[in-house]
Design a protein around this nucleic acid. Structure first.
Lengths: 346, 346
DNA sequence: CTGAAAGCGCTAACAA
DNA sequence: TTGTTAGCGCTTTCAG
């Protein structure tokens, strides 16, 4: 078993002191060029790399950011993670990812664990349960210890930190307006994620658009089920509920507040013999795989998840530089959504 | 800014030496119960947690495992990651995740970076490019340094390490046989992932099943496109190619070697007015979101990605215990697949 | 130009 | 029962 080479060993082989070797590796001008060359040569011969742990212990920086996500089996968060990872890698940072599975308890544990592993900062999207309980002390600790946090998508007003969100309300309003503009009058909202902050905003936006057009009626179905169940189960319960709802209501459009709701609506419509978009228009949220591979393809609100993740990472990394002002004022960045019109609307 | 409390501070406040405090925290029997109690009390008052970096530097263990995935915008890998994360968390391990985006270069960089961050071990699924180039020196380095590696799904014979795979050949054979058993005779194979190891195995399996039934004919379409493009683009090119293929060939079944291929086949069939499964049966691989939310729902080979990930983690963790035998013989674990019959087959 | 020494926070062998 | 010391690998100040 070959062990990793250390400064000490290089120093010994070169008959130099550890500190000289260390400085040489950094091309410190106070070291002679000749020595610097000798050191570099041997170092690259052994493929020397400084031990990251030791550097971190000394510098109190790990070049690691903790990412806490509620789910990963969800295109939106997967894509955001992708954006985060890309941005982090570009700047020589690693990410350590924890998935709370929408559990408050897990979230608390992970925040603690990562904090004690000395991550340099956090990127967080809150779990559903955390949002419902509105318990955020675990983040207040970070605040007190001055660990930078950036929240995205699932954020909380209780915590004063940088945030990156999507303007869900406007997005939803626009989507609704699009349906209205294309002649839809009896529009239903279908959601399977009623509990979380973004769904509430989306609902509000849709309401506003509907209320501004007096001949439009809005019907609301909230499928009571957690997000996790949806992904894990065959989810017939949800489908049945949506089927019943579609049969009982005479609709000409559905706005799904999440991708699954929209996808299921499309499939149930087929089953019931409704033509899309002739009989019924459908719009969804989150431009994921389901939207691209449904039939017909789904018109959808794209939240630009990757950009969102990248943006969150960018902001966090900005706080990780040396000369970071402790008393700076936090900001909330709003990433614009766009309505991607495909074939499920007129 | 409140800083984290250290042993030193506890020691000072208690008028004890650092080592006494350290031992007390571990309930070392050579320390008096009284002292132990005092220490514990103050420690929990300050919510003391040992600095993970220092512990790691000392012990040469980080309680972190490096996970290298080709993609994350892919249900299979996302699910595997979920399984890994769960298993790791259960054992007090963190994971640091890197996404190669199917690039060899990135894979090399990440392996190096994580190795020099002293992860305790690796869980890897090879990138497409790595498999095509068949360049695996970056893993041989790990072998030499005795860093445990477990590969899953996308593995290589060149590397002697534990592996967790799915029996793709058998799975594919069974899927094919199922089509044959339900009366299909003119069966096509559609794939968009021809380059990677698993696709080749799946193709082989399908061939074997077809050849064993002499009245069955097999037609093959390999859509030349990388996986990444598929996910990122609207991918009309692929759809057009599949559409042309379906029109030109008189088929009664399609076996998609990846989920996307199967999902697109279903949608194109709708477009062409073919009834599923009456006119054409479809089977896919990877029981992801698309399979559950297609219409009709897709009969699919489930690779049990979560179990696969969990298994890989379990094996790796087994090597991370103290008394690990250096010269143990590596093994390849095969996770059974199952055919989930839904509505896209007779 | 080079080296000795202290220290990051912790553990563990050894002394007292 | 408690404390001293050395050391994990590195950086950095200060001396030589």
């Amino acid at each position: 078993m070959r062990k990793k080479v250390t400064l000490k060993q290089l120093a010994r082989e070169l008959n130099l002191s550890i500190s000289t070797v260390s400085k040489s590796l950094k091309n410190d001008p106070e070291i002679s060029q000749k020595t610097i060359n000798r050191v570099h040569e041997l170092a690259s011969f052994y493929n020397y790399k400084p031990n990251a742990l030791a550097v971190s212990l000394k510098s109190n920086k790990t070049k690691t950011i903790g990412v806490i996500l509620p789910e990963i089996l969800n295109h939106f968060f997967a894509k955001a993670l992708f954006g985060i990872e890309k941005e982090a890698a570009k700047n020589g940072y690693k990410i350590v990812t924890c998935i709370t599975n929408e559990s408050y308890q897990k979230e608390v544990e992970y925040v603690e664990m990562l904090n004690y592993s000395s991550v340099d900062g956090f990127i967080v999207a809150l779990s559903q349960e955390t949002q419902v309980l509105n318990e955020l002390d675990h983040f207040k600790v970070l605040k007190r210890e001055n660990v930078p946090v950036v929240m995205f998508d699932r954020v909380s007003d209780e915590i004063d930190c940088d945030k990156v969100i999507v303007d869900d309300k406007v997005a939803s309003k626009n989507a609704m307006q699009y349906l209205i503009d294309t002649g839809c009058k009896r529009i239903a909202i279908v959601t399977t994620i009623g509990d979380i902050s973004v769904a509430k905003l989306r609902l509000e936006g849709a309401r506003e658009a509907a209320e501004a057009n007096k001949d439009v009626s809005l019907i609301n179905l909230e499928v009571k089920d957690t997000i996790i169940d949806l992904v894990e189960k065959e989810s017939n319960a949800i489908e049945n509920e949506i089927e019943k709802f579609l049969k009982e209501n005479d609709l000409d459009a559905v706005l799904g507040l999440d991708e699954t709701a929209a996808a299921i609506t499309i499939n149930i419509s087929h089953k019931l013999g409704y033509k899309i978009p002739q009989d019924i228009s459908v719009i969804g949220f989150t431009d994921g795989l389901l939207s691209k591979h449904s039939y017909p393809k789904l018109t959808t609100v794209s939240q630009h998840a990757e950009d969102l993740g990248a943006k969150a990472a960018e902001i966090l990394l900005g706080h990780l530089v040396d000369d970071y002002d402790e008393n700076y004022k936090t900001a909330t960045e709003i990433v614009k959504t766009s309505l991607i019109v495909r074939e499920s609307t007129k």
